[in-house]
């Protein structure tokens, strides 16, 4: 199937990826070719099939809700791009 350029722009917004005008037509063409491949699925008869998320149909193991992790704030923030007073900094959100 063919995907419209405007749809690519919407997807890029949803996925939070900046796409520039130079590459958008190439991205559109390549995504269309992948979607063409994926469209082969529509021919499959799956009327008798239930959905499944885990290939082994395994159920999730449960455990007691106990504290197991130690506080590693300093180690975790040491690798952050920008922090202050134990918080992660981002550009100002509210004016």
């Amino acid at each position: 199937m063919n995907i419209e350029r405007s749809e690519i722009e919407k997807l890029a917004t949803l996925a939070r990826i900046a796409i520039n005008d130079e590459t958008i037509s190439e991205v559109t063409a390549r995504l269309s070719s992948v979607l063409e491949l994926v469209d082969q699925l529509s021919a499959a008869d799956t009327s008798a099939i239930e959905n499944v998320a885990n290939p082994l149909q395994a159920t999730q193991r449960l455990r007691e809700d106990e504290v197991a992790e130690i506080n590693q704030r300093e180690a975790l923030q040491a690798i952050a791009p920008d922090t202050e007073a134990g918080l992660f900094l981002v550009p100002k959100v509210i004016e």
């Binding site: 990826i17 995504l31 799956t46 959905n51 499944v52």
Partner: peptide, 28 residues
């Protein structure tokens, strides 16, 4: 590219046709 494809397959109106269908094919 894969993030965009994945976003497309999961986006409103396409989920059943793509992700739901693919999970059923997986069962086949």
């Amino acid at each position: 590219r894969r993030i965009l494809i994945g976003t497309y397959c999961l986006s409103a109106g396409y989920y059943d046709a793509y992700y739901g269908k693919a999970q059923q094919v997986r069962q086949l």
